[in-house]
């Protein structure tokens, strides 16, 4: 279908964007920010979304690209595309963050990844989106720019539910900050057709012994089992007990994760099916993370 009519605005800078958003929302409008538009335009064509104003931030300077700061944190500009992360050269995206690069193959397909942005994906907050899962797994902080200036929101406070975030209606997401390298991390998922939204997605970040043969802690995060991406403390407790890296440990972590979740059922899978996927995917993610 065709989208409902809207008024198009081209933003020039962040302050202007925040001011315009505040004005539009304050006068009863329902403005939406558009960047790559790979989720938004599809929803508008379906008329699932009918914003009356679109504020295009794709021309705003300084929101694109990757950089590592003096403390080793990776900053990803909101307008950076999935494909730019997928093809980022080593000096920009080192082995500590390779999990981000490798996860990009799960984001839609190439023509989606060339347009879709990291910031757009995070702000859209689909419960199965790879960026949302990675942000929760790696404790990313989202930087929001509003009329009162900048603020940082931790991933655990950023995602509130289905397609819902802590961003105010007059705030723009400017970057995501991944604070620490995670050299032994992996994301994997399952969808009926590759490129579709995941039925379940699993990501782990492991803390290995110096010889690489033992596990002494780590994180487990899941998408598709709740209204937002979640950490799984029950599975992380198994990792914290530690042990030799190998199928027995992965299976124990995976079983704990599958027991802990209470996934929804829909056309893509029953709760029981999703629990089974959780078990398989967590074990697979552990194996991939260790073999890095």
């Amino acid at each position: 279908m065709k989208p409902a009519p809207f008024t198009y605005h081209r933003a020039r800078d962040l302050d202007g964007t925040a001011k315009l958003l505040a004005e539009l929302a304050g006068s009863g409008g329902e403005p939406k920010i558009i960047a790559g538009g790979q989720s938004l335009v599809a929803m508008m064509n379906f008329r699932l979304a009918r914003p009356d104003h679109l504020v295009d931030i794709s021309g705003v300077e300084g929101l694109r690209g990757l950089r590592t700061d003096g403390e080793g944190a990776l900053h990803i500009g909101a307008l950076t595309t999935h494909h730019e992360v997928e093809t980022a050269p080593g000096p920009l995206l080192g082995p500590g963050f390779a999990v981000l690069r490798d996860a990009m193959r799960w984001v839609g397909h190439l023509p989606i990844r060339t347009r879709g942005t990291v910031g757009g994906s995070l702000a859209h907050a689909d419960a199965t989106a790879e960026w949302c899962l990675l942000a929760v797994l790696l404790d990313a902080e989202m930087v929001a720019h509003g009329p009162a200036g900048q603020r940082r929101v931790a991933a655990r406070d950023f995602f509130l539910g289905y397609y819902s975030t802590a961003l105010e209606e007059d705030e723009v997401l400017t970057e995501a900050v991944f604070p620490r390298p995670a050299p032994h991390a992996a994301l994997t998922e399952f969808a009926q057709r590759h490129g579709d939204f995941a039925t379940v997605a699993a990501a782990v970040a492991l803390d290995l012994t110096p010889d690489g043969g033992g596990v002494r802690g780590g994180r487990v995060a899941l998408g598709g089992v709740d209204a937002l991406p979640v950490r799984v403390p029950e599975a992380e407790a198994v990792l914290a007990e530690g042990g030799r890296a190998g199928p027995a440990l992965y299976e124990a972590v995976a079983t704990a994760a599958a027991r802990a979740v209470d996934p929804p059922g829909d056309a893509n899978g029953s709760p029981e099916y999703r629990r089974g996927l959780t078990r398989n995917l967590v074990a697979r993610a552990c194996e991939e993370a260790v073999s890095r």
Binding site: M1, K2, Y8, R10, I34, G37, Q38, V41, A42, N45, F46, L54, D56, S58, H83, G108, H109, L110, P111, I112, T114, R115
Partner: peptide, 27 residues
Amino acid sequence: CEHGICGACTVLVDGAPARACLMFAAQ
């Protein structure tokens, strides 16, 4: 399909393949 699934509308934008149904002409 007009929602980015089928790819019939794929064109190149600055050399990169993109869905022309998921982009406004203004963009």
